[in-house]
């Protein structure tokens, strides 16, 4: 296993981690602040990717598609909040699961009806369609580097909003103790709306950024949603910092695991057996990680909630 290969895998892991962070950031706030289990959050990511497909096709400019997709993703999130989710905040978790599951089924199918069941691809925008030479002889696509940088910039901006602004203070307070915030005269309903729209937009942003890298297809958000839940459980519900650390951790463990586990097993057993078992063990790693975290620190690595 050469160092360059590991370097590439680290970059791929960061790329997955950044996408996961953008999805998990909204999810962890919605979950931490409102106690709302939103299974349909992965759908927002899918909608973002399809918005990118549609707007890129219509405008011919990735930048324009990017700038138009964000407000549209926000509007779609707010429409869903208005129609369905706001009626569920006071309900138990299982009603939320049932309703948001229904939303997933509906929107996945709607997207399939409009865009067809086949996977679509978005071309990498021309100004980023070139490669970095990381080390002599090793090229890495510029778009993927841009994706990582964009994700890190968003993370920095989020950190600023959450820790340095009044809204961020309210969100943090809400994640720690929503009843107290409400009792102090903050309009929690409005706060929820802000958090929700914000989260939907971030997931949409993840979709737009991921569209040129992953294939765009109905249901693309479902598996990532489960991984995003793994991220917020590891990071601690309601904690943006936790989501960031855990997203990068999960991204790296998952990506590096896929090559390292198989290679490691080859040392212990014959190659064909290692090739069979390796991927299965690698797929399990993030869940093993989550189980360990839940076992030793049930509240996650960076818990936002006050422990009573």
């Amino acid at each position: 296993m050469s160092t360059t290969l590991i370097l590439i895998q680290v970059l791929n892991g960061l790329q997955l981690g950044v996408i996961l962070f953008l999805i998990a950031a909204g999810l962890t706030l919605v979950f931490g602040v409102m106690g709302f289990i939103n299974l349909a959050h992965g759908v927002q990511y899918m909608l973002g990717a399809y918005l990118a497909v549609w707007l890129y096709g219509a405008t011919g400019s990735f930048i324009a598609a990017f700038l138009l997709a964000l407000p549209l993703a926000l509007v779609l999130g707010l429409v869903l909040e208005f129609l369905v989710f706001r009626h569920l905040y006071a309900r138990d978790h299982l009603s939320q699961v049932l309703a948001t599951f229904g939303v997933i089924l509906f929107l996945n199918q709607l997207v399939e009806v409009i865009f067809g069941p086949a996977a679509l691809t978005v071309e990498v925008p021309q100004f980023l369609d070139w490669s970095f030479e990381l080390v002599p002889g090793l090229l890495y696509p510029a778009y993927r580097v841009a994706l990582i940088v964009a994700g890190l910039l968003v993370a920095a901006a989020l950190w600023y909003v959450i820790t340095r602004t009044r809204v961020g203070m309210l969100i943090r307070a809400g994640a720690t103790n929503p009843e107290m915030v409400s009792a102090l005269g903050v309009n929690v309903r409005q706060l929820f709306l802000v958090v929700f729209g914000f989260g939907a937009m971030l997931a949409g942003l993840a979709g737009v950024l991921a569209a040129p890298v992953f294939s765009v297809e109905p249901g693309m958000g479902d598996d990532l949603l489960i991984v995003a839940f793994v991220v917020i459980i590891i990071g601690g519900a309601g904690s943006i910092r936790g989501a960031f650390v855990a997203a990068l951790l999960v991204g790296l463990v998952d990506t590096l695991g896929r090559t390292l586990v198989t290679d490691g097993l080859r040392l212990a057993m014959d190659a064909s057996a290692a090739n069979q078992i390796g991927p299965a063990i690698a797929s399990m790693l993030i869940y093993v990680l989550m189980a360990l975290v839940l076992f030793w620190r049930p509240e996650g690595l960076f818990a936002a909630k006050v422990t009573r």
Partner: peptide, 29 residues
């Protein structure tokens, strides 16, 4: 193991074990 947790942690830890079974079965060449 799972009974040590409660609430949402219980949901997620049972999910984790379920996924482990799922991937383990997929590796039975």
């Amino acid at each position: 193991v799972a009974m040590r947790t409660s609430g949402v942690s219980f949901i997620m830890i049972t999910l984790a074990f379920g996924q482990m079974v799922y991937f383990a079965l997929g590796s039975l060449a």
